[in-house]
Amino acid sequence: MRINGKTWKFGDHINTDLILPGPVMLLPFDEQPKYAFQANRPGWADEVAEGDVIVGGHNFGTGSGRPAARSLRELGITCIIAESINGLFFRNCANYGVFALECPGISKFIEEGDEIEVEFGQFTVRNKRTGEILQGTHFPDMIMEVMAAGGIYPMMERKGLLAEPNPETA
C-alpha cells in the first residue's frame, strides 16, 4: 500500500481540542470538520485538499476520545505521520480509515509542502523533493487492514453487525 500526498506540518503536542473544539460539537456532525485547527491555524480547513498528508511532531493527537481523526479524514487527510502519536488517537485514525505512522525524525525530514510517498509494506517515507527515505515504526497487518478498509464501521457493516442509525441522534 502506497500513499502519495502533499504535506502540512504541525508542531509538538497537537491535541484533539484543537482538531475538534468542544463548542463545535453542538453543530451538526457534517459541519464540525471545518473548525479543525481554527484556534492555532485559522483558514487551514479551507486550504487542505483530498489526499493531503499531515506531518506532526511529538505526541500528536494527545487528548480525548472524540472523533477528531474523522474530522481530518472528512477534510481530505489520508495519512498522518508524526514523531510520536497518542495511542487513542492512533486507534481512532485506524478506525476512521486514516493511515497513521510514527516516524522519528520526520519533522526535520520534511518541509511543509513537500510531496511524499509513504510505503506501508516497509513503513518508509520518501521525500520526493530530496529523494531521501526515512524509516517509520512497523505495526501489525491487522491494523493496516482496518485502515485500508476505510475504518471499522465498513468492516462491521460487511459482517452485518450494525443496526440502522437512530434518526433522532443523527
Partner: peptide
Amino acid sequence: ARGIGHPEMSYVCATGQTWFPVC
C-alpha cells in the same frame, strides 16, 4: 483500562473483544 474511541466501542459492544498492541 483505557479509552478506545467511538467506533471501537461499537465493535466492543457487538463482540466483547478488541485489540491492543503490547507496548
